[in-house]
C-alpha cells in the first residue's frame, strides 16, 4: 500500500489498496471522489473558487470549476464510471477572524460553495462534508473502502 500525496493546488488519483492524502487544508477545500466498483479514488486540494480569478498561467488544480472536471476526467480515463462517482469534501475554514469581513476573508465558505456548484454541474452526488469552522484539516482516503479520514489538531479524527 502506498500513500499518494496531493500538494496545495494539486490533484491526483489512486486506486485500491493505496491511500491518497492532502495535508493542512485551511480555507482550501479537499474534494475526494470515489467509484466503489473500480475502487478508483481522486483527490484535489482546491485553493480558489473560480478560474475567472486567474491572472497568470492556469493551474487547473487550483480552482473549483476547473479541478473537479479534470479530476473526474482523470478517473474516467483510469476506468471509473462517472455515474457511480460520489464526492466527499472537507475544509473551507476561516482560519483567522478579522473585523473587516472583505470578500477575500470569506474565501473558505466561497470555496465550499464553488465546489458544490462544480459537483452539481458535473452531476456528482455529494455524499458528505466536513466544512467550515476555524480549524485546519488533513484528509486521507482509503481507496479500498472509500472511507475519508479527517484529522484536525483540536477536533480529533472523524471518518466519513
Amino acid at each position: 500500500m502506498n500513500v499518494i500525496k496531493v500538494g496545495m493546488a494539486d490533484l491526483n488519483i489512486a486506486s485500491s489498496p493505496d491511500r491518497i492524502r492532502t495535508v493542512g487544508l485551511g480555507s482550501c477545500v479537499g474534494v475526494a471522489l470515489y467509484d466503489k466498483i473500480t475502487k478508483i479514488g481522486g483527490l484535489a486540494h482546491i485553493m480558489l473558487p473560480s478560474s475567472t480569478l486567474n491572472k497568470g498561467v492556469l493551474n487547473v488544480a487550483k480552482y473549483a470549476d476547473t479541478a473537479i472536471p479534470k479530476l473526474i476526467d482523470d478517473m474516467v480515463k483510469k476506468g471509473a464510471d462517472s455515474r457511480r462517482i460520489i464526492a466527499k469534501i472537507a475544509g473551507g475554514a476561516q482560519m483567522f477572524s478579522f473585523s473587516s469581513a472583505s470578500e477575500i476573508m470569506r474565501i473558505g465558505p466561497r470555496n465550499v460553495e464553488a465546489c458544490k456548484e462544480a459537483l452539481r454541474h458535473a452531476r456528482i452526488h455529494l455524499n458528505c462534508e466536513d466544512t467550515g469552522g476555524n480549524w485546519g484539516r488533513t484528509i486521507e482516503m482509503d481507496c479500498s473502502t472509500g472511507v475519508l479520514q479527517v484529522r484536525s489538531v483540536n477536533n480529533g479524527v472523524k471518518e466519513f
Partner: peptide, 14 residues
C-alpha cells in the same frame, strides 16, 4: 491561530 502550518500559511497566499 494555533493550527497546522499548511492551513495557516495558505491563508496568506490567497
Amino acid at each position: 491561530a494555533i493550527d497546522m502550518a499548511g492551513a495557516i500559511v495558505s491563508y496568506g497566499l490567497i
